[in-house]
Amino acid sequence: MVQRGSKVRILRPESYWFQDVGTVASVDQSGIKYPVIVRFEKVNYSGINTNNFAEDELVEVEA
């Protein structure tokens, strides 16, 4: 279970941040499909630095 402030590695192959490390900004408990919002240092092609992920697409590298 990841929690706010954890450092996580992204396992979603189609993601711009695949294999990159980001910080968990928040975790939604309402039961949505992609409840974990992760914030990154670098921006993607659209200038965005956050994205939603499912918990099984993340691996915690640092608490």
Rank of each mutant, 00 (worst) to 15 (best):
F18K: 00
P13I: 13
S6A: 13
F40H: 00
K7N: 04
S6M: 15
Y45N: 15
T50S: 10
Q3P: 04
E41D: 12
V43H: 12
E55D: 07
D28P: 04
V61Q: 04
V61M: 07
F53C: 05
Q19V: 06
S46L: 15
P35W: 13
T50Y: 14
Q19P: 02
V27H: 04
K7D: 03
V59G: 07
P13A: 13
A63G: 12
V59N: 06
Q3K: 14
F40A: 00
R9S: 03
N51V: 10
E14Y: 12
V27S: 04
P13S: 09
K7F: 09
V61K: 03
R4G: 04
I10L: 05
E60A: 12
R9T: 04
R12M: 04
Y34I: 01
G47V: 02
N52V: 06
G47K: 04
E57M: 03
Q29G: 10
A25N: 06
R9W: 03
F53V: 00
R9Q: 07
V36A: 02
P13M: 12
Y34C: 10
V27L: 07
N49R: 08
L58K: 00
K33I: 07
P35Q: 08
V27G: 02
E55R: 13
S46D: 15
Y16I: 03
I32D: 08
R4A: 14
I32E: 09
F18G: 00
K33F: 06
N51S: 15
R4D: 03
E57G: 03
V61E: 06
K42M: 07
K7E: 03
S15Q: 03
E62P: 12
S30V: 04
R12S: 06
I48R: 09
R4T: 13
A63S: 12
M1K: 15
E62F: 13
P13W: 10
K42L: 07
I10Q: 01
V43P: 15
S26K: 10
P13V: 14
Y45R: 14
F18A: 03
P35S: 10
Q29A: 11
A25G: 04
Q3D: 02
A54N: 09
D20W: 10
P35H: 08
F53R: 00
I48T: 10
I32C: 12
V36S: 00
V8K: 05
S26N: 10
G22T: 03
Y16L: 02
E41Q: 10
Y16D: 05
I37Q: 14
Q19L: 14
I10M: 03
T50A: 07
V61C: 08
D28N: 08
V61D: 04
I10N: 02
S6C: 14
A63F: 12
S26V: 07
E14D: 14
